[in-house]
Design a protein around this nucleic acid. Structure first.
Lengths: 247, 247
DNA sequence: TATTGACTCTTACGTTACGTCACCCTCTAA
DNA sequence: TTAGAGGGTGACGTAACGTAAGAGTCAATA
């Protein structure tokens, strides 16, 4: 059980940062009756994970959604982070190489195209997003879209029609509760369609993870929300309830 | 001669960023008569340098002051950046090692102190600041403070009294122009004191660099500004003028 | 020649992740 | 009991852009 200052000195991050993480619900320790924050060993562990993600330039919001996942796995995350840190290291090496080339270029020992001059410096590249998808819950999604691509055009049409119908149905009732009978019936239908037509059986946990993807991955969110603002969020919640009830 | 979009696609940074860099005077290209920005090869080169510094997490303001230095040396900067990138790489390796240890720790194969759990993660460490000082103009400063420490207490007192006097004199006239006779006289006195008592001869360029340090290095700035808000900036300007006039 | 699509500009407000007060409370050691 | 270190909550400031609005430009095409 440690107080803020102690955690701050151990970890090297500021007290303000700890306050902030509490404020946004990323890391909320317990409190004593005088209102002081107290951090347990578990909190420290979680903080460590947060900092690993931060070292990978993950925005705090994303870190939160990832770690809030019911099926979040500490060990799995560590392996993921390690892999990505190695990639980051490689990018640094690329930049260093670019510097070397530039030095040679200045000495007239070498030619460089304009593009070569900026090797490794384009921070824009999908960056973490790509891999973040690949990991956290996408296996299931991948398999389904893969399957989807292998279908004939007719089949695709039929399928997308089903999707369309379900989305519209859900959009119509998205103002109500995700736990309502209507919503759960629609979600059940959704679950059936996926399992019957996509050729891969979703476990309830995979189904739940899929729902999470809807709000974690912008591409999904945008697509789904075309049917109605906030639909992706609504579906995630409904799928969560569904997974809870049927387990 | 390239337009924004082209530069953006070559470098991978956004058009907005280029606009912004122009806005803050970090990288201001020329313009055609229709107001379009046009980037020369030199601009690209400068942009490359900026991105190298950015890869080291230098704040843009610092990048600007560094690159605005009259004695800024492209090649020298490249070597510096390379060295620092290697250090950054090492920090990544430390983090990776910490992950490995944590994995072993979870498997019960290893013990870890709380501090070890955060090895490499404390972003707070002087970071670039330290090295940034060591480089850009500190050689001169170093030698003087070194000398200063080797003095007897009596000598120190006398010297710090001199410093005190000059600072106060300058603080009193800091509202006027740094090029005014008063200011230049005081600065001349300052130059003499440094050269007579510190035991190291400042070339005019070193003197100028020293002035630059006053605003680049927070420790200097704070110290000096105790005598009056903005004094550090005033001295930098005055020292610049002095160096210009006497060369 | 008019139109279109791809670029360009400026202005301005929004966002993330804190830093930095200000003001007040609480605990502990002297 | 008193000082000093540490705790808390606002609230405002900052950096480095993202994003959207409204309007002008240019080259290719219909």
């Amino acid at each position: 059980m440690k107080h803020v200052k102690e955690v701050a000195t151990i970890t090297g991050i500021s007290v303000r940062t700890l306050h902030y993480y509490d404020q946004i619900g990323l890391l909320s320790p317990g409190t004593t009756d005088n209102g002081y924050r107290v951090y347990t060993e578990d909190d420290l562990e979680k903080l460590q994970q947060i900092l690993f993600f931060r070292a990978l330039d993950f925005p705090l919001k994303k870190i939160k959604t990832i770690m809030d996942r019911p099926d979040f796995d500490h060990l799995e995350a560590l392996h993921f982070q390690k892999k990505r840190l190695h990639q980051k290291k490689k990018r640094l090496e690329t930049i260093i190489a670019t510097i070397d080339h530039t030095i040679q270029h200045m000495k007239g020992e070498r030619d460089m195209t304009d593009k070569e001059k900026f090797n490794g410096l384009d921070f824009s590249q999908n960056q973490y997003e790509q891999e973040a998808r690949e990991k956290y819950g996408e296996e299931a999604v991948n398999r389904s879209t893969q399957k989807l691509n292998s279908l004939s055009n007719n089949e695709k049409d039929a399928l997308s029609q089903s999707f369309h119908r379900i989305y519209q149905k859900l959009a119509a009732i998205r103002q109500g509760s995700p736990a309502s009978e209507k919503a759960q019936n629609a979600i059940h239908e959704w679950y059936e369609i996926l399992n019957n037509h996509v050729g891969y059986h979703y476990t309830l946990e995979a189904f739940r993870a899929l729902g999470q993807m809807y709000i974690e991955d912008q591409r999904f969110t945008k697509n789904i929300d075309q049917y109605g603002e906030g639909l992706a969020l609504f579906m995630r919640d409904a799928m969560n309830v569904y997974a809870d009830r049927n387990k």
